[in-house]
Design a protein around this nucleic acid. Structure first.
Lengths: 339, 339
DNA sequence: TTGTAGGCGTTATCAG
DNA sequence: CTGATAACGCCTACAA
């Protein structure tokens, strides 16, 4: 691999000058510049970014922490972030935590050691101090999807509460009164917000909140299935179920299928998160569509501002709308459900 | 940020010794080691990996190029690779090409400049020379999912041909004789292999190959929908359609839904790629399941061998089995289809 | 058992 | 308009 010195030698100038033309950072006579460019071409010289990073204290790399890239919701977020960052010539180191606080912490440390210029993270909620400390130490950080208590960091969220509110309200309008809800881990801000939206809609409709109708679990297919079983085992069972994330929704359908129940005839369902394939199979899922791609995009834009202008600014909170997409899985209005 | 010198000073030793205890690379008296460790703790010193990389010529970072992380198939591959590499303390720079050769080339160059220790790629097929050159220049590379002509690089594939063969054979056994197939871009090795498998099954069954029944397009929902329309517009239309990747399968179902056709009654369908949610909605999809996670895992293992032992070895070709998962979307055996 | 010194490939200050 | 020169933070002969 040729270095800047090789180029300099070949062009008969000093490495300094080569560096300057490379970065277009001071005027160089057309003649020498031409010679240098030729040398660069001939040697097929490409600057070593590691060396540059060491010197310039800037790596053009940002860290991205999500719980699992395999979850289409996070994949969308990553893509959104990546699209804006790659435009700015940043690349992205991707890390999965699987919701494990230790891995999150290790990852954070690793990324700091690799000197990423910034960080976008979907947090587990367990490492509040570590993130604060990193931020205080000067690392630009933007959280996506979930907030951290205190809101000391820049955060981009979907309007979970309103999304859940709309979903629940929709079911209420269809005549449902016993509406089960499947929530993710307590302690994650999204679960909290979605529960609030659910309760707000019920309260507004004058429907009493039955704690037995709230089931929480890990945001996985298994977690959703377990919660679904608990709900369907109630007497009477709910006539509708609101599953508040994509994997748990799948778990719910696994259970529905296992029990040979029909949707929406036996249970109406509203999910959370949207994906193309949810609209083409039966029952096409009524769901709260999160602006997943935009979440990532917005997070990256905020991060970029902070990295670029070095103006840390105050922590900010951006909330993007979530909207209900009505399809078949809720069925038609039902008269009065009396169990 | 404290440096190794700060630690040395605080412990009253030379930076050298600190470095040696850090890397456990030569014997140090217990007493000094203890002092050093205390200093490290007190200063909360963490080595700067950029500096280390520059010196050690090893970044503990590998590049991963896929066409789109938003496609669950690639997300799985990435996850598989990541799981094995993170165990080895490597992190991963993720890049999307969207099948654009230019972006692929830019990405390759960028990753080389960032001095990744290795590269895993799903190639577009257009930059054969660039990849060879990088490999010749000493960059360990493993291709996944698609091969490049000449097979000069280590490659991990799914058994596309046999997968497609099984799918087609299954449809034949059910009595179908006019079987349409929706293929991805020609020029991508997977399309070629899947076509071969399809044709082999037909040939074996003594069914003539009708070119009108082969439709190709971009591996997107839109591409799949277009191909589906072309097939369904034939007279007579095929009684079964084999869609050879996940996005195109969705496109097929979009079209089926638009035309108010029933599956499997009006058209039987076999897809490619499996995902949890495909098994819970109706019609549950019969599909050729690729070992996506294992593809990534295997690729990373091969890459790791090359990076670790510096034994480049010969290019190798690993083919992982793809297996047909039978569900409802093919329906029951039909007597004899005579159009 | 420990330390000195040089260099990895760039960039940036300062001087010419 | 151009060049020495000194870092950036770490590793590793070589020397003691």
């Amino acid at each position: 691999m040729p270095t800047i010195r090789d180029v300099a030698q070949r062009a008969g100038v000093s490495p300094t000058t080569v560096s300057y033309v490379l970065n277009d950072t001071r005027h160089v006579s057309p003649a020498t510049e031409a010679r240098i460019r030729i040398a660069i071409k001939e040697l097929d010289f490409k600057p070593n970014y590691i060396a540059r990073s060491l010197r310039a204290k800037c790596t053009l790399t940002v860290g991205m922490i999500v719980s699992d890239i395999t979850n289409p919701f996070y994949a969308d977020i990553v893509r959104g972030a990546q699209d804006v960052l790659s435009t700015r010539h940043y690349s992205l180191i991707l890390c999965n935590t699987d919701e494990a606080p230790v891995r999150e912490l290790e990852t954070l440390t690793l990324l700091r050691q690799k000197k990423v210029d910034g960080l976008i993270a979907v947090v587990t909620g367990a490492n509040v101090d570590a993130f604060s400390e990193a931020s205080d130490a000067g690392l630009p950080i933007v959280l996506v999807d979930r907030r951290l208590p205190g809101d000391h960091l820049c955060t981009v969220l979907a309007d979970d509460e309103h999304g859940a509110y709309q979903a629940t309200q929709h079911l209420l309008q269809l005549g449902h009164r016993r509406i089960g809800v499947i929530l993710g881990r307590v302690g994650i801000s999204t679960s909290e917000h979605r529960r609030k939206g659910y309760e707000a809609a019920l309260r507004e409709a004058g429907v009493a909140i039955d704690p037995a109708l709230l089931q929480t679990g890990h945001s996985t297919v298994a977690g959703g299935a377990a919660a679904a079983k608990a709900l369907l085992d109630l007497t009477p069972p709910p006539t509708a179920i609101f599953a508040t994330n994509n994997l748990m929704t799948v778990g719910l359908f696994v259970t529905i299928k296992e029990r040979h129940l029909r949707c929406p005839e036996d249970v109406a369902v509203v999910g959370f998160d949207d994906m193309v394939w949810l609209s083409v199979f039966s029952p096409a899922l009524t769901t709260v569509a999160q602006p997943s791609y935009e979440l990532g995009k917005k997070a990256a834009e905020l991060l970029w501002n902070r990295m670029d202008e070095k103006k840390a600014g105050n922590p900010c909170l951006v909330i993007l709308p979530a909207k209900l997409v009505i399809r078949e899985s809720c069925g038609q209005a039902i008269a009065a459900v009396t169990h």
